[in-house]
């Protein structure tokens, strides 16, 4: 009985290949070194698109907690991304707040938004929840589009980028490292949550709500926690996104955006962290590398996605190597 397989972990099939800490640390170190070296060995264009992919890693990790861990289908995740971006935009532009003061505010507002939308809806079954979140996403975008404070359709411009210890973070390479750090932190937090009391509770509730309740788990509270943590990821992504571009407009937070983030999670493998990271890189980088074929790239990309879903319905990342 000792030789029987362990249950699949958040790392998916990776745990079978990288079975010793030494191997794990080696691979992590090599990957990290490659990421650090990347902007110095490639051109500026690659740096910018990989930065964009890293932003998607952060957003998708957040959505992965909601969809992957807690099993709640959220079609309006871009709303939290928007709340983060607009909080930074408005508070720095109109109230002259420092970015580092605006950031915690963005987190607080996104959490409040998460609680407001989550409290009445998390009692719903997942298909209803999907519709409500879709509506919520649109409400946030349309509000941003129509309010004077959010700059209407043209959005907010001239958002100042942050300073760290007297250093002005402004070049593309600077922001590349900002998002690299965010992605790494995002991964660490996701892993730690997965292996915690709360992380397990998400899985219990996802697999069997009744049995989870019979074990003393407050399902509404546990789901709300997933929702709020996801919202925080989204808002942090949004805050740095605003600081990076210096300008935001409602169209950056459309339904399409929500779907794209969800696509990253599903494509990579729901609930599997390396899968989500890989998914973000594929969804963002593939269309860029296909630029050579012109408009055909969207077609090729779409066919590729369909094939992946057809042959690997549970995501690219292997669930388990052997069973």
């Amino acid at each position: 009985m000792a030789q029987l397989p362990e249950r699949p972990s958040a790392w998916g099939g990776l745990s079978a290949i990288l079975d010793t800490p030494t191997k794990q640390w080696t691979v992590t170190a090599v990957l990290l070194a490659a990421m650090v070296a990347l902007p110095f060995v490639t051109d500026g264009y690659i740096t910018v698109i990989v930065t964009h992919a890293l932003l998607y890693v952060v957003l998708a990790l957040g959505l992965n907690i909601v969809v992957g861990y807690a099993g709640l289908l959220d079609l309006g995740f871009a709303a939290f991304f928007a709340v983060g971006a607009y909080t930074v935009g408005i508070t720095t532009q109109y109230f002259g707040l420092n970015f580092w003061l605006a950031l915690p505010l963005a987190v607080v507002f996104a959490s409040i938004a998460g609680i407001i939308i989550g409290t009445p809806t998390l009692r719903l079954r997942s298909d209803y929840l999907a519709i409500v979140t879709l509506g919520f996403g649109e409400i946030v975008r349309l509000t941003a589009r129509n309010l004077r404070e959010t700059g209407g359709a043209s959005g907010i411009r001239g958002i100042e980028s942050p300073w760290i210890f007297g250093y002005h973070v402004q070049s593309n390479i600077d922001f590349y490292f900002v998002f690299l750090i965010l992605a790494v932190l995002g991964i660490i937090v996701s892993v730690r949550l997965a292996n915690s009391r709360l992380g397990r509770a998400w899985l219990y509730v996802r697999h069997d709500e009744d049995a989870a309740e019979a074990m003393g788990i407050d399902r509404v509270r546990v789901k709300l926690a997933a929702y709020v943590v996801g919202a925080i990821y989204g808002s942090i992504g949004g805050a740095f996104f605003a600081a990076n571009l210096g300008a935001i407009s409602p169209e950056s937070f459309s339904f399409r955006q929500s779907v794209e983030i969800l696509m990253v999670v599903i494509l990579g493998g729901i609930g599997k962290i390396p899968g989500v990271v890989l998914g973000a890189f594929i969804v963002i980088l593939a269309p860029e590398f296909l630029r050579g074929v012109g408009d055909l790239r969207y077609f090729i990309f779409a066919v590729g996605l369909l094939l992946i879903m057809l042959f690997r319905p549970s995501g690219i990342w292997p669930a388990r190597s052997k069973r």
Binding site: L193, S196, R197, V229
Partner: peptide
Amino acid sequence: SGQHGRTSAGVVDAI
């Protein structure tokens, strides 16, 4: 899972 209701660690503790 049975110990969930007898324990209290939350998000911050986990992180």
